[in-house]
Design a protein around this nucleic acid. Structure first.
Lengths: 147, 147
DNA sequence: GTCGAATGGTCAGCACGCTGAACGTCATCT
DNA sequence: AGATGACGTTCAGCGTGCTGACCATTCGAC
């Protein structure tokens, strides 16, 4: 089957398409544990210590509202617990449940998706370096200080 | 402001984040014409000749249902017209309206987003080549023949 | 102490992606 | 011609992302 010619595509479209395909492959792998690309990354962030929702949102470069719903889903599936902080009752402390920790460990163990991307990308380290540089640049522009 | 350390991020997460940031910058530019990254790409595909919805979906590497709704929105804003084909009444022929063509021309004229990505990415041609290779590989796996 | 601003989360609503299921239309085979 | 299957589109529903608006809590200035 012939691939469409992508040489004329805008770079943004290439990025979105590649991201979608990567997410799809990853989600297929993570579905076993009722996880997906977003929630898995959150579990990973929580593996060290509990965090507030805003901390998680910032670490994921996502808006608070988005994180709120991802966590709602994670809680619904029993992967995390949420409890209002006792010292600051505005904050919600999010922590891994034992089930969440197990799921994280198992899902991270055979990371088929990362291996897949390794094959698909010619030079994975170079790609990662490019993406990291790009994210740094674009997110600095987006949340630029009102100078 | 210190960037979070992304060296530990999964590659899929890097891709998604970079794509989201690129889409955001692009959408901000296209909002003037009631367009966004998805609908703009569709207009571009239609600039040559009218197409059926399925053709558009395949060209965009997207499911039919998704394309259906993007087109519904484009029609609502007057950028495209949709008409049942006379030769095959299952098909819907999508064509640019004059307003759509004007919007496409204007939006494509000063493509601020592509320039932005050019700055953000160190080596844009290399990045594009990597992404194109990756999309080819991943989409072949996804829609692999039932061998 | 009180008032107002800043902070942390949530709700409502939109858009793009996906899956699964339905619908009308064509094409083919008998 | 009638049944069967393939095709093109849409509907229902979910998930992640966004924006804008709202609520409760805390902190600071007075």
């Amino acid at each position: 089957m012939s691939q469409p010619d992508m040489s004329g595509w805008a770079t943004g479209r290439l990025l979105s398409t590649a991201a979608r395909l990567a997410e799809h492959a990853w989600d297929a792998h993570l579905a076993r544990w009722d996880l997906n690309h977003a929630s898995f990354a959150v579990l990973h962030l929580l593996s060290g210590a509990p965090r507030s929702q805003r901390e998680l949102a910032q670490a994921m470069q996502v808006e608070d509202q988005t994180m709120s719903r991802v966590l709602e889903r994670l809680e619904r599936h029993g992967h995390v617990g949420r409890a209002r902080s006792t010292t600051d009752r505005r904050r919600v402390e999010v922590s891994l449940t034992p089930e969440g920790r197990t799921a994280l460990t198992e899902a991270a163990a055979d990371d088929a998706a990362e291996a897949l991307l390794g094959e698909a990308a010619g030079d994975l380290p170079a790609l990662r370096a490019q993406l990291i540089g790009m994210i740094g640049d674009l997110s600095a522009r987006r949340w630029a200080p009102p100078d």
